[in-house]
Amino acid sequence: MKNEVRKGATRAVDIPRDILRALSLGELQCATLAECLAVDQAVLARTIFPALTAPALNAIDAACQLGVLKRMTHIGLAMLEDLGTEGIAQCQRHRADMARGWACFMIGAQPYLDVDVRLAAIYPLADDAHFGVREWAWMAMRPHLVQELPTAIAQLMLWTKDPSERVRRFACEVLRPRGVWCTHISALKHSPEQALPLLSALRSDPSVYVQDSVANWLNDAAKDQPAWVRGICDQWLENSQAAATRRICQRALRNLK
């Protein structure tokens, strides 16, 4: 019964109190987006790390009053400052998906890391079995990759060949021009062709998970550069008979008349 209720809970108010308590104590993993958003991260932090200092706890409490992305960013920074890099390993090993999400933002909060080093650190979290952790992974990396776009694209090209569909999807999702819950990437809104090597590498990917990401990337781009997106889809369809490519293009053009 609990599993049925959890699958149907799409709003925080629909989550049973015992489930919410277990989530906030790190005893369960989140089953829905609503559960991810409803976790009391201040309680969870105190449960997992009872030795956190008062300044860190104050920073976490303040962060819990912010929007979703800012909340995770500020908690990641507070934990990194208090726990150091060992805290990343502790969070990454924890069964609570939210703790592994903190690890993503702790990696994001580390200063002075080269793109390849930062991507190597986030790799296992980008390939996490939990849907929420995979989303936190790309959100935590996006600001850094945008700052070094050509280098990031070159590094992510290696990820497009990864055996894991989760990693291949990350290579596309992290640089969507508009994205979800994140700042738009102006450079890619104006010049989406910069990311064409990534998109082309995934244009016939057998995974629906990856196909949807590529299609959504192009759908984002079509809001600013519709002619470019139409041209790319025409080229792909002319040169490929793959069902995956047809599906991507159909979804990419869904909002264009």
Rank of each mutant, 00 (worst) to 15 (best):
Gln241Pro: 15
Pro16Gly: 04
Trp181Met: 15
Glu35Phe: 14
His130Pro: 03
Ile19Ala: 07
Val115Met: 01
Glu86Met: 12
Ala109Ile: 06
Phe131Ala: 04
Ser164Ala: 05
Val133Met: 02
Phe105Arg: 08
Gly84Phe: 05
Tyr112Leu: 13
Val167Gly: 00
Arg46Val: 14
Asp14Phe: 13
Gln241Met: 10
Ser164Cys: 05
Leu158Trp: 04
Lys2Trp: 12
Asp40Lys: 12
Asp114Gln: 02
Ala120Val: 01
Ala215Leu: 10
Glu148Met: 12
Gln65Pro: 06
Arg203Leu: 02
His94Phe: 05
Arg11Glu: 15
Ala42Leu: 13
Trp136Thr: 02
Thr47Met: 13
Gln92Trp: 08
Phe131Tyr: 08
Asn58Trp: 09
Gln29Leu: 08
Arg21Ser: 14
Ala201Ser: 09
Ala12Tyr: 00
Arg71Trp: 15
Leu158Asn: 07
Arg21Val: 13
Leu256Arg: 08
Gln92Arg: 12
Val117Gln: 01
Glu193Pro: 02
Pro143Leu: 06
Ala56Phe: 15
Thr183Trp: 02
Ala51Ile: 01
Glu135Asn: 07
Arg71Ala: 09
Gln41Glu: 13
Ala221His: 11
Leu253Glu: 10
Gln65Cys: 09
Val167Asp: 01
Leu199Cys: 08
Ala31Val: 06
Ser213Phe: 07
Leu145Ser: 12
Ile232Asp: 08
Arg169Leu: 09
Met139Glu: 00
Arg100Asp: 00
Ala195Met: 12
Ala244Lys: 00
Pro226Arg: 06
Gly8Asn: 11
Leu196Arg: 10
His130Met: 02
